[in-house]
Nucleic acid binder design. Structure first.
Lengths: 141, 141
DNA sequence: GACTAATACTCAGTGCACTGACTATTTCAT
DNA sequence: ATGAAATAGTCAGTGCACTGAGTATTAGTC
């Protein structure tokens, strides 16, 4: 009756993985240059809330300590952010945008929406919105 | 009027990335052992279609040549598959499950559905199905 | 004030995922 | 039959993402 082995291609996780790959591909196509989607996230959060510590940025973007550390190291190396030990709490690295980081953010912002459009090319606006709602619900908001 | 910088956390791509992370986390929680979701995909495809080449498996799972090569190397090292040069076309590596691979697939199959359930805990069955439909549409099937 | 907990970060190791450059092999056109 | 194009894999390099172990610093308890 039931199939011996369900096709892995139908699983939700498989679809999510592929959709995420499409997003990365769309990003690289629309946004030229070295900056990645995750790095854009760091810039955008930091623009609103300068002086956050690595840990807090990581929480905003749902990245664990090691991952956000890696990202920050790369971004500091690329001259987009500064990382300075907090004088009040010397365990913390506080982060700020550099001029280059601010400029890069400004360059990228108008392109970001195009990436979403490209990604959702096969969906109507209503379907796209519903997809976001469902993903938000899956994530528990 | 419009915000200077839209919150990156609201973008579809951001939600997809987080949802995919949840899937990986659910997988690791439900399926103990070394096997990953992608590796399960290789096992499941190979069970139905033994003797496929790396390239073909990669196409099934939407992975590029380098990625599927890495995965296959690891799985061969782990004793789950065999990789043999095709006598007819010596460019190809043909893949087969080993006994260990077959056993591992058998172990994992019943757990896979639980992963999907865990992942979609916040959704009704109808919402879950709709999410799959929308993702399929986004991917262009 | 000293001991313990908790916190923030680093470091090493592993896996997925991509590009671009390269090798080997097969196929196709002339 | 040969030379060009296409195909399948490998290899090096980069980035995201996690775990587990370790360090330094702060905060809390006695």
């Amino acid at each position: 009756m039931t199939e011996e082995t369900r096709e892995p291609q139908r699983h939700t996780g498989f679809l999510l993985r592929r959709a995420q790959q499409r997003h990365v591909a769309a990003w690289q196509h629309e946004v030229s240059g070295d900056i990645t989607n995750v790095q854009y996230g760091v810039l955008a959060v930091l623009a609103r809330r300068p002086g956050l510590a690595q840990k807090e940025i990581g929480e905003e973007l749902d990245l664990d300590r090691s991952t956000i550390a890696d990202v920050c190291v790369r971004m500091e190396r690329g001259g987009m952010i500064s990382r300075v030990q907090d004088a009040q709490d010397r365990r913390r690295n506080v982060l700020h945008l550099t001029e280059r980081g601010r400029a890069e953010l400004k360059r990228v912002v108008p392109l970001v929406d195009e990436v979403q459009v490209t990604l959702a090319r096969g969906l109507t606006a209503a379907e796209h919105e519903q997809l976001r709602v469902l993903l938000g619900k899956l994530l528990g908001d």
